[in-house]
Write a protein that binds this DNA or RNA. Structure first.
Lengths: 125, 125, 125, 125
DNA sequence: GTGGTCTAGACCACA
DNA sequence: GTGGTCTAGACCACG
């Protein structure tokens, strides 16, 4: 009866998110080769099929392209990467704002909260 | 090897968070009585022991007091409630800011992102 | 060394095509329930995972919707069904026209050929 | 139980079709010599026996003649070539019309569909 | 070597 | 009962 409390993203999505992060942060650049399915599977301690799904998902989204017999590569299309960055950003903000509103904070409360947070951060918390 | 991908908070903490929320939002006010351990256990579909830990945790933090034979009550000390609100807020902001920085956003990027988000929210997404 | 001569669509796609046909022909109507993954797997003599992929693909395309714990259903959106019909039609025509041009027929040859074909069909070939 | 989903023409027929195409398009003219069985086998990456069957099939149909010690030649009989062209055309049209009718299209739907297709083709897709 | 598909069999969450 | 995810291990086509 504990189901309600698990709510984790599927592993193949978590791994995709991790790759998305690397791309958005520039650790993986346009045109870079990703690890092979099998290698990534070992790195992640996961079955190759799961990585296959990850790569499939990322290709569907257009952030990655596969060249037959050669491997999987980050798209050359910088626009797609920028769009991805925006999309991930919005996703995170949505979750954050929702949590804050559940605590009873208004939009301006939220902004003030973050500004305050940055101020303390600067002063060595 | 899959443990790495689960990363869920313990259930008793999740339930505590939920109660904290109700307190901070004023749904549960200073001095209000919480449901009994057994009742809460049924409501949450969880073992009473788990709720016992939840209540223990909340008492440790001082946000709740148990009066023997009477039940568990929200603290009368409004300061503690206010502090709780701030603490929860900071916790959420920390996670949020960390995620945003992992995507390569600076402090001012973050503020601009949220302002933009609120602007779109107002215009009906 | 015979690889070049196989060139078959993956099974999960072939099954999807078959379902698309049934939908387009009206044998499966908007809102109808598809067989369960397991049942369809038995009917098709295929592993349930393969059907899962078929259903996943059809959902991605938006022609099918899954209701958790209840099953998979043809979309209620008649527009999507109409679009599907057009897409399948164009796909078939493309293959056909390509074959005809490989035989050296021009566009008007092709039209005349089909008209002639229909004429004979009517006269009891 | 997967046999049902393969449904590929035998290789020797696929190769025959390819030769038929060349003849019908005039790339191979009446009286032209075909490559030797061995050469063709290498070109196609196929066992010579397979090509032997291909040539046998084409001879049976009368589109090709073998002169002992000299090789295999396209028939001198232009009528047979013309007939072949018509037969191949009808074959393709049959398959096409069948597919379209399986999608629920009528004869006039089909004609309109192709005309529309040509119109778009001309306008640069 | 690469990615892509398929099977067999397992477990999970939702309703 | 439903669909969804995951593993293990196999085979294929492409370059």
């Amino acid at each position: 009866m504990t189901e309600e409390f698990l709510a984790t993203k599927p592993i193949y999505m978590q791994i995709a998110d991790r790759v998305y992060q690397q791309i958005v942060r520039g650790e993986l650049k346009a045109g870079d080769k990703l690890p092979s399915v099998r290698e990534m599977a070992i790195q992640s301690g996961v079955n190759p099929n799961t990585i296959q799904r990850t790569y499939g998902e990322m290709e569907r989204v257009g952030i990655v392209e596969t060249k037959r017999g050669q491997g999987t590569f980050v798209t050359e299309d910088q626009d797609k990467i920028n769009t991805l960055k925006v999309k991930l950003q919005i996703e995170i903000i949505q979750v954050f704002v929702k949590s804050m509103k559940e605590l009873g904070f208004s939009n301006s409360d939220i902004l003030r909260g973050i500004e305050e947070f940055f101020r303390r951060e600067k002063d060595g918390h």
